[in-house]
């Protein structure tokens, strides 16, 4: 039913990701998907290889002239220790984050980039319709959050002013356009109005680049709040 390729980042997104030309929020969502999807991982390394060749071609092979500035810079660099000693590895290992989170007695293994984010501590808030949300601040262009939909929950009908990326981490949800399971990368644009629901429960990571607008019933009352929430989540902190 659903075009399977549609549930991955587009080629353009992977290109922007591979060259570091995307907001942190979107990079994180793509990185998490790439960790779960061998196909996109492979594609990302191919794009990196192509981007490297383009970079080399653009910049030619002029080498840098020796100068005293340059020599002292090299001196200061080679005075630094290298990452080769076992104890430095041990330090890195010790810092590696917890990989699992527990949601209603289920233990869910997160992709490493999300585990890193979650290890700072998530603050869950209950929203309408059996939805729990934990916002994380990653940049000033997007609103990012973990969303947990309890079994049998339903998000009010809404549309987006911008794009919404939803990466399914565990369980599944569905809307009028299909049914989505682990590692699926669902992109909704301003033209979509949808009403996600989950029978079995679902943990997602979502990235919005502008606030949601609810389109039906009492939920519309939340609209000003949604905008406020978005502003707050993306406000710069000094």
């Amino acid at each position: 039913m659903t075009d399977k390729r549609a549930l991955h980042p587009t080629e353009t997104m992977l290109e922007e990701f591979a060259t570091g030309n995307l907001s942190t929020g979107k990079c994180v969502a793509i990185a998490a998907h790439v960790e779960l999807c061998a196909e996109c991982r492979q594609r990302t390394s191919e794009i990196e290889a192509q981007a490297t060749l383009a970079w080399l071609a653009e910049t030619g092979s002029d080498s840098t002239e020796s100068s005293s500035d340059y020599a002292s810079l090299v001196d200061s660099i080679v005075a630094q220790p290298q990452f080769s000693d076992a104890d430095e590895f041990a330090e890195q290992d010790a810092a590696s984050p917890v990989r699992e989170i527990h949601m209603h007695e289920r233990s869910i293994t997160l992709p490493s980039v999300l585990a890193r984010i979650a290890s700072d501590g998530l603050v869950w808030k209950k929203l309408a319709g059996g939805i729990n949300q934990a916002s994380v601040m990653l940049d000033d262009e997007t609103q990012c959050e973990f969303l947990y939909m309890k079994p049998g929950s339903q998000v009010p009908v809404h549309k987006h002013q911008g794009n919404e990326i939803t990466l399914v981490l565990d369980g599944s949800f569905s809307d009028a356009m299909g049914n989505y399971g682990p590692s699926d990368f669902v992109v909704r644009t301003p033209s979509h109005t949808h009403q996600p629901a989950s029978d079995e429960g679902c943990l997602c990571f979502a990235v919005l680049d502008s606030p949601l607008t609810f389109t039906k019933g009492l939920a519309r009352l939340f609209n000003p709040v949604n905008r406020y929430r978005f502003k707050r989540a993306t406000s710069q902190r000094v």
Binding site: G20, T24, C27, V28, A31, A86, F89, A90, Q92, D93, S96, S112, V113, R116, I117, D120, V136, M137, L138, D139, D140, Q236, R237, V238
Partner: peptide, 22 residues
Amino acid sequence: KRQPSTVNADDIWPQEGEHDGN
């Protein structure tokens, strides 16, 4: 841009082998 230091580039693009040296 003073973005929070929750994640860095090496978390987003991990070099395989970096974390499993031991």
